[in-house]
Design a protein around this nucleic acid. Structure first.
Length: 288
DNA sequence: CGCGTTTGACCGGCGC
DNA sequence: GCGCCGGTCAAACGCG
């Protein structure tokens, strides 16, 4: 991981060049990443432990990742993020020097699930139609829900919908309780790919955007298939995942400690993950 | 005309 | 049972 004092990395994707990501460390409060998930709404208070933001209940339970016991949330202590009092965490780097568009800082919150096929096939209406009026039991629907992979992260950016190489169609927008900012719902436009993406701006820190991916792409990124070779360095293309979030989260996050007061391990994002997922310039992986 | 967005209605889960 | 809320649908609309 990069030096905390010099941890700004370029984000070069299409027209969104000039942005910068950086990691978080402990000397910055994680509170900018708070947002109102259902539990929090009832508390009417900010959640101090970011782990609570991504607790299992928020994701309707079921994060089982058999290959990575540390991420097995069949237990109640789903791992996400420790609190801010520990020592070697992520850090909000200082702002990039480049232009007004210079954006900074991202944190990732892994919250995922192993199997995701048919991730988008649990819609209630579909369930009704499928068997001609004979409603499927809730259980079936729930099981499918629980198999859906989720991955959420926070980006400090003025742009809500950062390019990630895939094409998305917006299918809804809802006001979020206790937040002045709406949540937008996107679906991957590729056929038979049910991946969804939720985007909302943090009500705590309007400069940060919370992006949640649901499911995994079953196809290549259009950006990868198209002529990006001229715009991006070869090492980046080599690092492109064939399918989004393949093998995550264990391949992309490392538990770096356990806070003594928390059941949640601290997680550190693997830079390769960001490079893969966000098509960052390969220099992202090097010390600036 | 095709594709994506907007937006109000609708649905189901959940807590009380 | 009721109301709240998150999520989805789908018709209308906008744009290239």
């Amino acid at each position: 991981m990069p030096d905390a004092d010099n941890n700004s990395y370029p984000y070069n994707m299409g027209s969104q060049q000039g942005f910068h990501f950086s990691f978080l460390t402990d000397h910055n409060s994680p509170t900018p990443f708070l947002y109102n998930h259902p539990k929090q709404q009832q508390q009417q208070q900010p959640v101090q432990n970011p782990a609570e933001i991504f607790d299992p209940s928020f994701f309707h339970g079921g994060y089982s990742t058999p290959s990575a016991p540390a991420f097995d949330s069949s237990s109640e202590a789903a791992p996400v993020f420790g609190d801010s009092s520990s020592n070697n965490n992520l850090d909000l780097g200082e702002t990039s020097s480049s232009a007004a568009a210079a954006q900074n800082s991202s944190v990732s919150f892994p919250s995922t699930e192993a199997g995701v096929e048919e991730a988008d096939s649990f819609k209630s209406k579909q369930a009704k139609v499928c068997e001609g009026g004979d409603l499927k039991p809730k259980k079936v629907i729930k099981e499918k829900k629980e198999r859906e992979a989720r991955f959420a992260f926070v980006t400090k950016s003025e742009i809500n919908n950062l390019e990630d190489g895939y094409r998305w169609r917006k299918y809804g927008q809802k006001a979020v309780k206790n937040s002045p900012f709406p949540r937008s719902y996107y679906k991957c436009t590729s056929q038979k790919c049910g991946v969804k993406k939720l985007i909302e701006r943090s009500y705590e820190d309007s400069s940060t955007v919370i992006t949640t991916y649901l499911g995994r792409h079953n196809h290549h990124s259009p950006a990868t298939l198209r002529g990006r070779a001229t715009a991006l360095p070869a090492p980046l293309l080599l690092s492109q995942p064939q399918f989004g979030f393949h093998g995550f989260p264990e391949n992309y996050f490392t538990a770096i400690n356990h806070h003594h007061n928390s059941n949640f391990p601290q997680l550190e994002i693997n830079p390769q993950f960001l490079a893969d997922q966000f098509n960052m310039d390969s220099s992202f992986l090097q010390q600036p």
